[in-house]
Design a protein around this nucleic acid. Structure first.
Lengths: 212, 212
DNA sequence: TAGTGCGACTCTATCTTTAGAGTGACTATA
DNA sequence: TATAGTCACTCTAAAGATAGAGTCGCACTA
């Protein structure tokens, strides 16, 4: 757990995290659009310039984490070992227990998930940004898939990428719903992963496998 | 109470105070000489260079406040209004209720005084430094007194300065003793000031006034 | 429709802190 | 008495944060 970071780097991480915590708390209370960045800066004990040093835009205070996750996801698929299909790499990455939801004994992480859901639900700006992130990841993924097979360039790669991303989005929404309903971390994680695995299986076997 | 400082200046004060607090706590626990500056820096969450940015020497962590007080004292005497004697200006400055000891309801300040006494008592280095500070202030004071009267340059000014500084030191030691014995702030302040006033009166009337 | 204000974001100079290597005194130990 | 180690303190370059002014788009209002 102790990353043995230098003082400089450790303080940067702390500042970054403090800004995020403060901002999300304010967003949750008053709504994303009704909290000026200047106020976040004041409450975080930094200057406004510092907030923009860390986060290129106000939206990144909410979506920085998600953006990073999508980037990692695409990178993981791109860097998969030979012999592993893009679909498998995608599935393995998404299903891997990770982050706070893996072991969230006190419910802190689930509370954060529920809060994020509330914040996003309350802002069209943020919903639009989520869409853009997903679209971008989908395109990148489709590109990878297209490079994979020798099939002619049709709709296949993009449709496949979209289907995969759909599982990911569905898992995210399920997690948000469960968290909002008060279920605690470990259970949420298990449920989401199980449902996700089933969904991937469905896609792999083909939609014909859907029970009638 | 709110000084309306900018962010930069406020953080500097906070950092400075945090370093002092951390250092004194460590000194009290282990002794001045047995706590490396590097450890103070680590525990204060700053680099060693930063400690020396704020405090020219390790001793200044303990004596910075005292040094500043002596400087102010000499400055106050130097800047006294016309018609006021150096002795009067000195006495008024020293007897004025000031700082934490003026109103120390919860005993925080007295605890700090007692701690400072313990720390100093445990280090010859610090005792020597205290002596140097007092000597320096005494010389400066003697200089001011000498400029005052037209008397020939004899021992008078220095002896007078020393006598005045003696009252100040005696008051300090009384405060440290009372604090160490568990007396609380407001009472300590009152007692010290009363005893100090009596001591000044004795000097002013001349030692012949001492009861036999 | 022109004006006004707010708020996101940028830019530059300056201040503060850190990293990291180094010096010199003193201490303990062989 | 040589040797190694500890520690106070210094120095320089680079990183990070702040101040303060300014741009631009947008909403509200006269």
């Amino acid at each position: 757990m102790s990353e043995q970071l230098g003082l400089r780097e450790r303080k940067k991480l702390e500042t970054r995290q403090r800004i995020i915590d403060v901002a999300l708390a304010l967003f949750d209370k008053r709504g994303f659009e009704r909290v000026p960045v200047a106020e976040i800066a004041r409450a975080s004990d930094v200057s406004e310039a510092t907030v923009f040093n860390y986060f290129p835009s106000k939206e990144d205070l909410v979506y920085g984490g998600m953006q990073a996750y999508e980037d990692e996801l695409v990178a993981a698929v791109a860097a998969r070992p030979d012999g592993t299909s893009a679909v498998t790499a995608f599935r393995d990455f998404v299903l891997e227990p990770r982050g706070a939801l893996a072991a969230d004994d006190d419910g802190t992480a689930t509370a954060a998930v529920a809060r994020a859901a509330r914040i996003i639900a309350g802002s069209q700006t943020l919903q639009a940004r989520e869409q853009r992130i997903v679209d971008h990841a989908t395109d990148a993924l489709a590109e990878l898939i297209a490079r994979d097979g020798e099939a002619p360039p049709g709709l296949g790669p993009w449709v496949a990428a979209n289907a995969l991303m759909g599982v990911h989005r569905a898992m995210t929404r399920l997690a948000q719903r469960l968290a909002s309903e008060g279920h605690k971390g470990a259970e949420v994680g298990r449920t989401v992963r199980a449902q996700g695995a089933a969904a991937f299986a469905l896609l792999e076997k083909g939609l014909d496998a859907l029970p009638v």
